[in-house]
């Protein structure tokens, strides 16, 4: 855990720590929230020209006290060579590769503790989001219009939801997460609150278990 320097309570918990403490998977709303919040921080990191890294495991996703979610520095994992850097020292790891790694980790967090021969039934919109993030969608030619997260807005929200077939950017992911809510404009506050609660509740559980021990 990213802890206070004074040895006090940590300011962040990794997703892995959260899963282990609860010993159960995250729920769907938490999955939407972690996706949204993490893509938000990844967009901000891109704007600051930070090198892109794939998320290797849930240990590299940090949920902060204030509801921010970040990918830990050096999240590429020991088994993965550092990504090549281009001019300006900017990593050549693509945005879609980072999104793919995030989708896989989110799925595993939803699948935590399940046996190999078991599969969790996910709501279709969340399964679709993860399917597209992880790039596991099977091309059947029936849904090939692409998700255009362009500036034209979402005039027909339901139509847009049906047309999802490609996620190319953090913004695409965030738009889909926002479209999941009754009011899209509430996405920043709502998802931050969900992640803040996830941190707070996990800390409460940690404190409780420590006292019991």
């Amino acid at each position: 855990a990213a802890g206070g320097e004074d040895g006090g309570p940590p300011d962040a918990l990794s997703l892995e720590e959260i899963l282990r403490l609860y010993n159960q998977p995250i729920n769907e709303e938490q999955a939407w929230a972690v996706c949204y919040q993490c893509c938000g921080s990844l967009r901000a990191a891109d704007a600051r020209r930070r090198p892109r890294r794939r998320a290797a495991s849930a240990a590299h996703i940090r949920v902060w006290r204030d509801g921010t979610v970040t990918l830990a520095p050096g999240a590429g994992g020991a088994e993965e060579p550092p990504p090549a850097t281009g001019k300006l020292g900017y990593s050549q790891c693509t945005e879609t590769e980072v999104i793919e790694s995030l989708g896989i980790i989110i799925y595993k967090a939803l699948d935590y503790g399940l046996k190999e021969n078991e599969e969790r039934e996910l709501s279709p919109p969340l399964e679709q989001l993860i399917d597209h993030m992880a790039n596991t969608v099977e091309a059947d030619g029936s849904n090939d219009e692409g998700y255009e997260a362009a500036d034209e807005g979402m005039e027909d929200e339901d139509e847009d939801r049906r047309k999802v077939s490609a996620i190319r950017s953090y913004r695409d992911v965030m738009k889909l997460c926002a479209a999941h809510l009754p009011t899209e404009s509430e996405a920043p506050n709502h998802y931050q609150a969900v992640c803040r609660a996830l941190f707070a509740e996990t800390m409460e559980l940690h404190t409780f278990l420590t006292k019991i021990k």
Partner: peptide
Amino acid sequence: KGKSLYKIKPRHDSGIKAKISMKT
């Protein structure tokens, strides 16, 4: 608190779990 129940079904070869497993 903060957790919801979820349904579990048998893993399917064409399901998302199998597809994710193939990626990792």
